[in-house]
C-alpha cells in the first residue's frame, strides 16, 4: 500500500476528542489516530482546519490550535477538536503521557503523538481557565476531566 502523502508547507494535524462514559476518548474520521489535513498554496491553515473539521464533524463543540512542530520537512500545526460523542467513528481511551521537553537551545529529539495529544489536552486545560468562550463550550464532565491536566500554553514541541 502506498500511503497518501499529505504535502505542503503546513500540515494540519487534528486530534478529535470526546468525553465518553469512562473518560476521554480519541476519535475522528480517521479513527482513534491523528487526522492529517493538507494546506494548499495560499490557504490559511486556521481557515482550512475549521472548514474541513466543520464539514466532517458538523456537531463539533470546539476547535483550537495547541502546538506546532517541525516534522517530515513541514511545519505541523496541531489542533484539538472537541465533539459531543464519537458517533459511528472508531474511538479509543486517551492515556496519559509525559511531555517531551526542550533543552535550553534545542527541541526534543523525538516526540510521539501521545505526547502531542497530552500537550493538547494540557493546553485545553489552560484555555478552560483563561478563555471564557472555551470554558462555556465545555460541560462539567469535561472540566472535571481537564482538572487532572497541568495547564500549558501553546508551544513549539520540536
Amino acid at each position: 500500500m502506498i500511503p497518501l502523502d499529505v504535502d505542503g508547507p503546513v500540515t494540519i494535524e487534528v486530534f478529535t476528542v470526546a468525553h465518553g462514559h469512562e473518560g476521554l476518548v480519541l476519535t475522528g474520521p480517521c479513527g482513534a489516530a491523528p487526522w492529517l489535513i493538507e494546506t494548499g498554496e495560499g490557504e490559511h491553515p486556521l481557515e482550512t482546519a475549521v472548514r474541513i473539521i466543520e464539514g466532517a464533524l458538523p456537531g463539533s463543540l470546539l476547535v483550537h490550535s495547541t502546538s506546532w512542530r517541525f516534522e517530515r520537512n513541514s511545519v505541523v500545526l496541531t489542533f484539538l477538536a472537541v465533539v459531543p460523542d464519537p458517533g459511528s467513528m472508531d474511538a479509543a481511551p486517551v492515556s496519559r503521557s509525559d511531555l517531551a521537553r526542550n533543552a535550553e537551545h534545542a527541541a526534543p529529539d523525538e516526540i510521539s503523538y501521545g505526547q502531542v495529544l497530552e500537550h493538547a489536552l494540557r493546553h485545553l486545560a489552560w484555555l478552560a481557565k483563561d478563555d471564557e468562550v472555551v470554558n462555556a463550550a465545555l460541560d462539567a464532565d469535561w472540566l472535571e476531566a481537564l482538572a487532572g491536566y497541568v495547564p500549558e500554553p501553546f508551544q513549539q514541541l520540536s
Binding site: 500500500m1 502506498i2 500511503p3 497518501l4 499529505v6 494540519i12 474520521p29 480517521c30 487526522w35 492529517l36 489535513i37 493538507e38 494546506t39 494548499g40 490557504e43 482550512t48 474541513i52 464539514g55 466532517a56
Partner: peptide, 20 residues
Amino acid sequence: HGREIHNMDVSHEEAMAMAA
C-alpha cells in the same frame, strides 16, 4: 475522501496506487 477529509486532490493514478 481526499477532498473532504484531507483537503487533497487525489488523481486516478494516486487512488489506484492505494488499491489492491
